[in-house]
Simulated assay, not measured.
Amino acid sequence: MKVIGLTGGIGSGKTTVAKLFQELHIPTYIADTEAKEIMNTSEKLKEKIIKNFGENSYKNRKLNREYLANIVFNDKNKLELLNSIVHPEVFKHFEMFKENNRLKDYIIYENAILFENGSDKLCDKIIVVTAPLENRIERVIKRDKSTKEEVLARIDKQLPDEIKIEKADYVIENKTESELKLKVLKIHNELLNN
């Protein structure tokens, strides 16, 4: 079973690409979604997060994402601290996911910070999703109710597309939905036949 890393900058459309692989019945692990779930359900993680970021980290026993985001997106050290608390738990969870799907031809491992946190080392092949900057900004403003400045600040903190593309085995440029489907299908067939 191969692990196929799927990454791309914020607003590039990697979640849409992940869903297209799911439609092809490929087991797909969305690291961000799983991390949020673990942060909401693991008592051990809750304790560590509250200890390091304060009682406001949780509201009504649920992760207060806005509160935490305001802290970590404005302080690189705090972001690294949060990642050092959360990533080991997500990694353990992903190992179980891999074990449960070991008989599949391949699985998709979607992770926005695949290269930044070293998860690319877990992957046999890597797909990078790109999109024009204006489209990305527009999508994130619509999705997160953010301002253009907030989106640009988040983009600025991510690894540039050029570097991701250099490290990729496949690059999907997200322009139209029909093109996207064809590109995913082409990669899917190549992965099944290699």
Rank of each mutant, 00 (worst) to 15 (best):
K175T: 11
I163A: 10
E37N: 07
D75V: 07
E43F: 05
H87P: 05
E150S: 11
V3H: 08
K148Y: 13
L81T: 06
P88Q: 09
Y58P: 07
K19Q: 08
K121H: 07
K78R: 15
G13K: 03
L185H: 09
Y67V: 09
V184Q: 00
Y58A: 04
T15D: 08
K145R: 14
F115D: 05
I172F: 03
A153V: 15
V140Q: 00
E166H: 09
K62Q: 10
G9L: 05
D161Q: 10
K167I: 04
E150M: 14
E138S: 15
L182A: 10
I49V: 01
E55N: 10
L45K: 02
T15K: 04
Y170S: 12
E150D: 13
Q22V: 03
Y106N: 05
I50R: 11
K181I: 11
N189P: 05
K59C: 05
L81W: 10
G11Y: 05
R154W: 14
I141M: 11
L20A: 01
E23F: 03
Y67R: 12
K62C: 09
K125T: 11
R102S: 15
K181V: 11
L103D: 14
E37R: 09
R102K: 15
N111Q: 14
S119F: 15
I127H: 00
H25V: 03
E47L: 06
M1R: 09
I126H: 00
S42T: 01
N40L: 02
V17T: 05
K104E: 14
E134G: 07
I141H: 08
E173K: 13
N64F: 11
K148W: 10
S57F: 01
K164G: 01
P132G: 08
N83H: 04
I165S: 00
E43Y: 06
E47W: 06
E116N: 06
K183G: 02
T130F: 09
E23D: 08
M1F: 13
T15N: 12
